[in-house]
Amino acid sequence: MNETLKLTDANWSKAISRKEKGFTITLWLVAISVIILVMAAFLTLLVQSIPSIKANGFSFIYGRMWNPITGEFGALPFLAGTLLTSFLALLIATPFSIAVALFLGEYYKKGMMSQLLKNMIDLLAAIPSVIYGFWGLFVLIPIVRKLQIALDIPPYGVGIFSASVILSIMIMPYAISLSRQVIQMMPSDLKEAAYALGATRFEVIRKVIFPHVLSGLFAGILLALGRALGETMAVTMLVGNTNALPDSIFAPGNTMASVIANEFTEATGAVYSAALVEIGLLLFVVVAIINLVGKRIIKHLAYT
């Protein structure tokens, strides 16, 4: 009789159940590791910020002085810069995003034009940030400079305005993609009822579609906002890197992501590095909240 293991039913199902267990455990481990990774990331940021939290307390958020020499760190200039550039970018991008979303989701749902436009918008999202910054430096800045000379203000070229313009181009694809989806997925019976009552297309869009998809549009804008808040390279090349509150749209300023990129590798002293990490922590938390709210809204939409 053979000493080797016979492939009996009992052996076979044991082998299978071992592989099953192995498989399910592996999957479970992977999921757990992802959770651990993210929690550890947050904790790392928190712990490394502690020297700064201790030294600066709440004045970190409203302090205007970022002074590595005296050790006084107030992050207000960067908070202001980030919020200004992001909201300005949203302001510029939203009309275009809604227009394209309507174009692709309502007017031209199929056809070559629509495919072409869709591909172009995808391409916009594919261009790396550093190339946007590079192009902005050599094409956008000279134009803004000419504008500033005409308006008789210092022709820096770089500043909040230029950074916002580039940012608006970069976040358009994100706002468009979600908006287009919700517009396209709008149930047709509501629209058809309105048409049956004699509404024009414009009126249907304004009075039927918009109210229905408003939360979806809002979620798309939120996601675009999340993207804008964290954008680093293009902004740091165009925003002017001035650690002060900007006093006008054309003034140079700085954003949270940009100051980290500028100063992280050289922050000597425990409080200085911790202050930069604290800015990173703030970014992490704010973007996480915005993204989660946006995703919540989307999930809500999926069930209505």
Binding site: P68, Y156, N241, T242, P252, N262
Partner: peptide, 16 residues
């Protein structure tokens, strides 16, 4: 302002 590698500049903008 004082002396240092990173300053609190009273005016102007920064480049890397």
């Amino acid at each position: 302002v004082g002396r240092g590698k990173s300053l609190n500049w009273p005016t102007g903008l920064g480049a890397k």
